[in-house]
Computed example of a mutant assay.
Amino acid sequence: MLVEAGRLGSDPAHARDRNREPHVALKPIVEGMGLQWEAQQKRVRRDPVLGTCMSITNMQVGGQGRQVTTIPLRYLNGFLSGIDVNRVRRTYGCT
């Protein structure tokens, strides 16, 4: 089941229920912050916790079925805390 987990500016952040736990698609979050997806995907794969819980899932994104990289929603704060705030696009950074 695909659900809207929240919003990043005006864009929806998508989540999918997997094994009774919501998993969020990372790429829209990363790109919404103005970061390079490939670099963040490598960082997730190297991380000892995130690397073991990430998965590739089929999701409807933008009206099309796509394979997306997801992590459990409960790990999203940990992922976000590893991002250098100076690299985040100004509209989402701290003021």
Score class of each variant (00 low, 15 high):
residue 2 L to M: 06
residue 3 V to Y: 09
residue 4 E to C: 13
residue 6 G to W: 00
residue 7 R to C: 07
residue 8 L to S: 06
residue 8 L to F: 12
residue 10 S to L: 14
residue 11 D to V: 11
residue 13 A to D: 05
residue 15 A to P: 03
residue 15 A to Y: 01
residue 15 A to E: 09
residue 16 R to L: 14
residue 17 D to C: 14
residue 17 D to G: 09
residue 18 R to V: 02
residue 19 N to H: 13
residue 19 N to L: 12
residue 21 E to W: 11
residue 21 E to M: 15
residue 22 P to R: 01
residue 25 A to R: 00
residue 25 A to K: 01
residue 25 A to M: 12
residue 25 A to Y: 03
residue 26 L to F: 05
residue 26 L to S: 08
residue 28 P to E: 09
residue 30 V to F: 04
residue 32 G to D: 02
residue 33 M to Q: 03
residue 33 M to A: 10
residue 34 G to P: 00
residue 34 G to S: 09
residue 34 G to C: 09
residue 36 Q to S: 05
residue 36 Q to R: 14
residue 37 W to V: 03
residue 37 W to R: 01
residue 38 E to I: 07
residue 38 E to C: 11
residue 39 A to C: 07
residue 39 A to W: 14
residue 40 Q to S: 05
residue 40 Q to K: 05
residue 40 Q to H: 07
residue 43 R to Y: 06
residue 43 R to A: 04
residue 44 V to N: 01
residue 46 R to H: 02
residue 46 R to Q: 11
residue 46 R to W: 04
residue 47 D to R: 00
residue 47 D to L: 02
residue 47 D to C: 08
residue 48 P to N: 10
residue 51 G to T: 00
residue 51 G to D: 12
residue 53 C to G: 12
residue 53 C to D: 04
residue 54 M to S: 10
residue 55 S to R: 12
residue 56 I to N: 11
residue 56 I to R: 13
residue 56 I to Q: 15
residue 57 T to K: 08
residue 57 T to H: 03
residue 57 T to Q: 10
residue 60 Q to V: 01
residue 60 Q to S: 08
residue 62 G to S: 03
residue 62 G to K: 05
residue 63 G to Y: 06
residue 63 G to N: 09
residue 65 G to D: 15
residue 66 R to P: 05
residue 67 Q to A: 15
residue 68 V to I: 14
residue 68 V to R: 04
residue 72 P to T: 06
residue 72 P to K: 07
residue 72 P to Y: 06
residue 73 L to K: 09
residue 74 R to L: 06
residue 75 Y to P: 09
residue 76 L to R: 00
residue 79 F to A: 03
residue 80 L to F: 04
residue 82 G to Y: 06
residue 82 G to F: 04
residue 83 I to D: 00
residue 84 D to C: 10
residue 85 V to K: 13
residue 86 N to F: 13
residue 87 R to N: 15
residue 88 V to Y: 04
residue 88 V to T: 10
residue 88 V to C: 07
residue 90 R to P: 07
residue 91 T to D: 15
residue 94 C to Q: 06
residue 94 C to A: 09
residue 95 T to V: 15
